[in-house]
Every structure is written in C-alpha cells, then in structure tokens.
Amino acid sequence: MSWLTKFLTSSIGRKLIMSLTGLFLVLFLIVHLAGNLQLLINDQGATFNAYAYTMTHNPLIKFIAYGNYFFILLHAVQGILLAIKNRQAKGSKYAVSTNKTASWASKNMALLGILIFAFLCIHMGDFWFKMKFTDIPMVAVEGLDYKVANLYSKVEASFAQWWIVLIYLIGLLALAYHLQHGFQSAFQTLGLNHKKYTPLIHSLGRIFSIVLPLGYAIIPILYLGNSMGWWTWFG
C-alpha cells in the first residue's frame, strides 16, 4: 500500500476527509443561504431569478457546484462507512446504557446525516432537477436583455404546500443537531484544540447550528404563511 492510500484509509485519515468535506459544506451552507435570502425581497422574484440564472450559467460556479456534489457524496458515503465500522468495533451493547456524558448529537451523526441526505434528495428533485430537466416558464427581468427561468414561481408553488414545508423543517432540525456537534468536532479532528481558541470555536459552532437552519427555515415558513393568508409578506 502506498503511503498515501494508507493515510487516507487510516482512522485519522478517514476522519480528516469527514472534517474537511464537512467544513466545506458549512461554507456552502453560508453562501447558499445568502443567495436564498433574496427570496424574501418583495419584487416578484426578479432579484432571485436573475441570481439563480447566474448561478446556473457561470462556468466557475458550475465547477464549484460539481465539486460540492462530489463532497456531499464523499462525506455521506464515508460517514455511513464510518458508522458501520464503529458499530462493529463496539460489538455488543451494555445492558445498562453508558455515555450519558456524550451529547445525543455526537452519538447520532449518521442518523442525522441520513435525514439530511433524504432531505437533500427531495430538495434537489423539487428545484434543481426541475430547473435542469423540465420547462420552467421564462420571464423578463428589468435590466437584463435575456429572459431567465422563473424559479421564484416554482419556489412559491412548492412552499404553498404544508407537507413540503414540514419536510424542510425536519431536514433543517437534523442539520441543526448535525452542526451542533459537527462544527466543533471538525476542528478537533484537524488537531486544533487550543485553550485560547477552542471556546471561540465552540461558540461559533453553537451560533452556526442555530442561525443557519433558522435562516433557511424562515423562507418556507414565510411563503407558506403568505399563501395561507396568515400574514402578508409579499404585497
């Protein structure tokens, strides 16, 4: 075995892959949220549609997007394999359960990951797949000399269904717990545990684990309420 294969298949090497891909996904989550919050602008989706057009047509962004798909798959496959390996390494269970000291999230990262993955499949099927492979009506946007797909109206239609919104909220709750343990864990895996910085990393992790899912959750909730007439966000 070459030194590199040995490294990447060693216990620490495999965790390094989890950590780096996980942190990349956190970065992605931040950028994706910033983009999606444009859905809250009250302009019949003009800003958002133009943004979505750029995201699907810029070659650099396309390249990063494919990298992103690859990292999610790598993270998910590796995560499941680790969970199986760890279950085998533990073998039998205690009659009286131990580790009340370890957080629930830290012991259920694979379960949370599978929930996130299931959500991602539904999410991609609903928007990305339809955007790519079905005809979404085109609209003109002020200031652009070409027409763009009206993804906004697709979002509006999806988020008018309460069960889709519910699936989103479940996915986001799983993400919240995944990040609650995952963010700080990734730094420990990288070997970064320091008296001065670790408390900051823990706080940042807690903030991310609340703010990111909450930021995402606001969008479907506002849309659902709007379509149900609970409130009027869009005039």
Partner: peptide
C-alpha cells in the same frame, strides 16, 4: 473504532486524561 469526538472517554477516564491529547495525536 474511529473517534467521533463524543468526549465519553475523558468523562470516564479514571486519570481524567483530556481529549486535548487526541487533537495532539491527530
């Protein structure tokens, strides 16, 4: 098994060895 950084080990270690050592090992 692999380390998921649960911290269960340091909580039960009779010598209270800290997981700071695990970061150092990594």
């Amino acid at each position: 098994g692999l380390c998921s950084n649960t911290g269960a080990c340091e909580a039960e270690c009779p010598k209270e060895i800290s997981i700071v050592n695990i970061a150092m090992l990594n």
